[in-house]
Nucleic acid binder design. Structure first.
Lengths: 119, 119
DNA sequence: TGCTATAGTATCTTTTAGGATACTGTAAGG
DNA sequence: CCTTACAGTATCCTAAAAGATACTATAGCA
């Protein structure tokens, strides 16, 4: 039953990355090192405050993202990737590379479909 | 706005792999090359027929998995990874590796927690 | 004659993720 | 005194994913 064991481990990684906004949050933090809450919000069109909060909390919970609160008014909260969080970058990169390939593959299928069924 | 472009591409990969049973299905097919429907079902404890069917159909749709039907009774249907599907293996592997690390990381956190709060 | 194996469908219900909207407190600036 | 920026909560609602359960056809076997 070693197959199940392996599966569980893949699921572990998935749980971190899955979430509609997590990949983009991580990519932004990898690029910019440190970002404030509203900075992230502005950089991610379409996200609501609630969604940004919950996704960040989940990433924080898993020790991927660091949250630093400054005792100021108006509030200032900075997010960054933890030392441990950096270890996930290769996974994002593998996915990014494959996605590029996949988009290409889909494009070709579509083209084929169109030329086959039109004249 | 190159950030959004990158994000979209990661999402592409995620859509393929996400689905509660897709990783284990893919891992099994990578290992065993060819498997019949019920063979998969028996290898994945807890999955229902409906779930197995829908997940396989989605993978087939994306050209990751091949479905071969034999005109027999009782039916015989064989599933395998397509040539294109093989290209996704590095992604699974990156995730698998990181997951191992992550489990280790979590274990350490838990241990720390326990020793800190008991006596 | 009934039973089994195979590879599914068809329905219905539950669970979870995601989203819309409104609200909070407080300092600085006009 | 009113408004803005900031970083959130609190509620409610919808849509999508997942799950439970029952059903299908048919050849071969005892």
């Amino acid at each position: 039953m070693e197959k199940q064991a392996r599966d569980c481990q893949v699921d572990e990684a998935l749980e971190i990355i899955v979430g509609k906004w997590k990949p983009i949050i991580l990519l932004l933090l990898f690029e910019n090192k440190v970002m404030r809450f509203n900075e992230l919000k502005r950089a991610i069109p379409g996200i609501t405050q609630k969604m940004l909060t919950t996704q960040l909390r989940e990433l924080e919970e898993e020790d991927i993202v660091n949250r630093e609160v400054y005792a100021q008014v108006p509030p200032k909260v900075e997010y960054s990737i933890t030392a441990y969080g950096k270890s996930i970058e290769p996974v994002l990169e593998a996915m990014h590379e494959w996605s590029t390939l996949h988009l290409e593959h889909k494009k070709n299928k579509d083209t084929k479909y169109i030329t086959t069924h039109t004249r």
